[in-house]
């Protein structure tokens, strides 16, 4: 049983080593993930409600405020 982790490791290691077109693809995947998560997500796509409100109650209040802004209420 103890040989399984070693076999699994070698399976992936050799697989990566033998890659040809896969090398370029992994480069593209890493660049893409970096651009998406480290640039776009971090600097341009903050979660609006999580960033601006501390609790779920405040978030719910904000959304209800947006949904009812146009309406008068009878209270």
């Amino acid at each position: 049983m103890s040989r399984w982790p070693v076999k699994l490791y070698r399976f992936y290691r050799d697989g990566f080593r033998r890659m040809t077109v896969g090398r370029s693809l992994w480069k593209i995947i890493f660049i893409k993930l970096f651009v998406l998560f480290a640039v776009l997500k971090l600097f341009f796509f903050p979660n609006y409600l999580k960033t601006n409100f501390a609790t779920d109650e405040q978030r719910a209040d904000h959304v209800i405020e947006n949904l009812t802004r146009s309406a008068g209420n009878n209270y």
């Binding site: 693809l25 992994w26 593209i28 995947i29 893409k32 993930l33 998406l36 776009l40 997500k41 341009f44 796509f45 903050p46 979660n47 609006y48 409600l49 999580k50 959304v63 947006n66 949904l67």
Partner: peptide, 21 residues
């Protein structure tokens, strides 16, 4: 697959920022 993978995650980014309600 490699080029297309994670292109859909951008839609999730947009939900949180552009479509918060």
């Amino acid at each position: 697959f490699a080029i297309g993978v994670a292109t859909g995650i951008i839609l999730e980014f947009q939900f949180g920022t552009n479509w918060s309600n």
